[in-house]
């Protein structure tokens, strides 16, 4: 119970902080919309309405991944820079329980971009999305964000030693957009890519959101998205523990 509260409060305060930064907040909503706009134009040229609708759903999910991938790598360095990293590690709470809410809050910011992109598509491009199962859609979007937050957690703890971690954002953003079925069906990718896609939570999360929006059974995808996300979290927890242990040996928590 108190763990749940801790995660909730951590998530809420991190969200507050991020919404107050134009970089994390405004940009992560606006930036994916440029890509979405390009994509809407591409599909409009083709004239196939069903494809356009499906693309709109996929494009709206892109922002959730951007919000995570571009910021997760630098989270811990940010904490270190402001001198809070030592305080977090020095608290009796497990380090993972401190970082997961932070990365999930990044994904939450991405949900704004999801909504904004859908509205943009509706208002500017007149893309009609029926939302056959509105409630399932909401669940699928939340699960997508949560799972991507867990991926972000793994990214955060594994890139802390990488001094130029900010450069990693651009490393992960496009590849995941490409191979996780946001817009490109897995079937047109080379065969060897498919198993990699299956291991990535966004693949299942995006499929779930799409199913829920366009009428399909989203529940298996939702379950797989959670399952793969949880697997990343477990790896993350192990890495986080090793990270903290090695920091105690090597004195790498403080900036000096």
């Amino acid at each position: 119970m108190s763990t749940l509260r801790l995660v909730a409060v951590g998530w809420w305060l991190q969200l507050k902080m991020r919404s107050r930064s134009s970089f994390d907040g405004l940009l992560s909503i606006v930036y994916p919309m440029f890509f979405a706009t390009t994509i809407f134009f591409m599909y409009r040229e083709n004239g196939d309405e069903a494809a356009l609708v499906s693309a709109a759903v996929g494009a709206s999910c892109m922002g959730v991944w951007s919000a995570v991938s571009t910021t997760a790598s630098t989270t811990l360095q940010g904490e270190r820079r402001q001198g809070t990293l030592e305080l977090l590690v020095g608290s009796p709470t497990s380090f993972s329980l401190v970082i997961v809410p932070a990365t999930v809050s990044m994904a939450t910011i991405g949900l704004w971009s999801l909504v904004a992109t859908l509205l943009w598509g509706r208002v500017v491009f007149g893309i009609p999305i029926s939302f056959d199962q509105p409630l399932v859609f909401v669940v699928a979007a939340l699960v997508l964000a949560f799972s991507l937050g867990l991926v972000g957690f793994l990214q955060a703890v594994s890139s802390v030693r990488y001094r130029s971690a900010w450069a990693l954002g651009s490393l992960f953003e496009f590849p995941v957009w490409l191979i996780c079925g946001f817009l490109v069906p897995l079937s047109i990718l080379p065969d060897w890519v498919r198993p990699i896609s299956w291991l990535l939570p966004p693949t299942w999360g995006v499929a779930a959101v799409r199913d829920a929006a366009l009428g399909g059974n989203a529940w298996p995808d939702i379950a797989l998205c959670l399952l793969t996300g949880a697997a990343y979290a477990v790896i993350g927890v192990v890495l986080a523990r090793r990270l903290v242990d090695s920091a105690r040996v090597n004195a790498t928590l403080a900036l000096t």
């Binding site: 994509i39 591409m42 599909y43 040229e45 083709n46 196939d48 693309a55 490409l178 490109v184 069906p185």
Partner: peptide, 12 residues
């Protein structure tokens, strides 16, 4: 690669 494949998917 992303845009090239989106182009292929969209047939544009």
């Amino acid at each position: 690669l992303f845009f090239a494949y989106v182009g292929r998917a969209a047939g544009v």
